[in-house]
Simulated scan of single mutants.
Amino acid sequence: MKKIAAIVRNHVPSNASKDVQDVINQSRFVGKVLRGQGWSVVEVELGSDIGEVVSALRGIRPHVVFNLVESFMGSDELASMAPVIFRNLGYSFTGADSPVLFMTNDKLAAKRHLMSVDLPTPRGLDEIGLKRGRFSHKGRYIIKSRYEHASLGLDETSVIQADKAEDLLAAMEDQRQKLGGSCIAEEFIDGREFSVSLIESPSGECMILGSAEIAFRADMDVKIVGYQAKWDEGSDADKSTVRGFEFRKAEPELSRLLEKTALDCWEEMGLRGYARVDFRVDANGKAFIIDVNANPCLSEDAGFIATAMEAGWKPEEVISSIVKSALGKYAN
């Protein structure tokens, strides 16, 4: 009898933006790989009615749930609800558990935890912190969504010069709508950008899958990977931010620093299954964690799979490893 995998993803409205639609591409890709490996695959959509998903999963009785839920009821903040459902039903599921997703989906909470365990990350402030006098120095800051991901709302206007707390408060108020609600001000690290992809072995050990650099065009005024660069293929922003892997051989010390820090992040944040840690590196070679991606995008053309392929992994091997690391966890 074939083993059954349930791919659970969030509901995608018909008028959804490209970043929201991308979960459909992920589901199709994962489903194709699993079917090729002999699994019977059923796709389940998590909409607003949790009871429907519970009933569907009880009827399917999957051996594993492949969790591709990126949002719930239109909010990335609520994506952490999905593992609660799977765990309470007694099904093994891929990727991070609920408490980890809850923390990493809140950029300020993740940042505070990183700082508490002495992992390097730029200082971040929310409106309450600014109003309570925590603004410490003049400089450049980047205004980010606190809970939404996929670089939602990020563009060159997101980086500002702030001389006082009121400058940041005004910028946050001005950009709140395009950032999807609550936002934070993070010290801007003017430098290079990297990512390290991580995967859990079936024995439970974290392995470095690979690392990549996003090379910025030299004449860019503000060197960031904004929304357009990620989602508007062929745009000037896309062409100005090119993924490359050459630095691993050219700069082995930097590569080792990033990978060690990413492994420390995996342990301290309680990540599992697979993850990606994003960095900025300043002119002095100091690395800062700017984002912790539990359950990163698994589209066939996304950075996680591209990094794996550069390191010699086949996409099928990546998906198989993710499933194998999940089997038996939380299952009744």
Rank of each mutant, 00 (worst) to 15 (best):
L179I: 08
A110N: 10
E267L: 11
G139Y: 07
G270R: 11
V159G: 03
R243N: 02
V242K: 15
L108Q: 12
A308G: 15
S145W: 07
A311E: 11
K314H: 14
A96F: 07
S299W: 00
S48T: 12
M73R: 15
G181R: 07
T157G: 05
K164Q: 13
E317Q: 15
G303L: 01
A331G: 13
E70V: 11
R272L: 05
A308T: 04
A82G: 04
T94W: 00
T261Q: 14
V69T: 09
G36C: 05
L130I: 02
V30T: 07
E77M: 07
D49Y: 10
A229Q: 12
D97K: 05
D126G: 13
R35V: 04
M220N: 08
Y91L: 08
E268Y: 10
Q228F: 00
A262Q: 09
W266P: 09
V20R: 12
R176Y: 03
S75M: 14
T241Y: 01
W313T: 01
I160S: 12
L130F: 01
I24T: 11
G303C: 01
Q175Y: 13
A302I: 04
S151T: 14
L179Q: 08
A56V: 00
C183P: 12
H63L: 06
L57N: 09
P62K: 12
E148Y: 01
I4D: 06
H63W: 06
V281P: 12
D174C: 00
E200A: 06
P315R: 09
T104R: 05
I142R: 02
A237N: 11
G133N: 03
A275Q: 05
R61C: 02
F247H: 14
D22G: 00
D155P: 03
E166D: 14
P252T: 09
I189K: 06
S27E: 08
D264E: 15
E253T: 03
R176C: 13
V225K: 08
L271D: 14
A165C: 00
C297M: 11
G90V: 05
K329A: 09
D221C: 01
V69L: 07
R192M: 03
R35F: 00
F93L: 00
G312Q: 09
D236T: 12
I199V: 14
I85T: 00
K324H: 13
K314D: 13
A212Y: 01
A185Q: 07
E148T: 02
V318C: 10
K239Y: 05
S80Q: 04
F288R: 09
K131E: 12
P202N: 12
N15C: 02
S211M: 06
Y141P: 03
H149Q: 15
S151F: 03
V69E: 09
Y91G: 08
G285Q: 05
E259V: 00
S80D: 14
T241R: 08
R61E: 13
K286H: 13
M73Y: 00
A185T: 02
P99M: 10
Q228A: 15
E43F: 07
E166G: 08
K131Q: 12
V12S: 10
M207K: 15
V318P: 12
I224C: 05
N284Y: 00
V44L: 08
I142Q: 03
V23A: 11
N88S: 12
L298N: 08
S136K: 13
K223S: 06
L263K: 13
N332T: 10
E187L: 01
N332Y: 02
D163L: 05
E45D: 07
S197T: 03
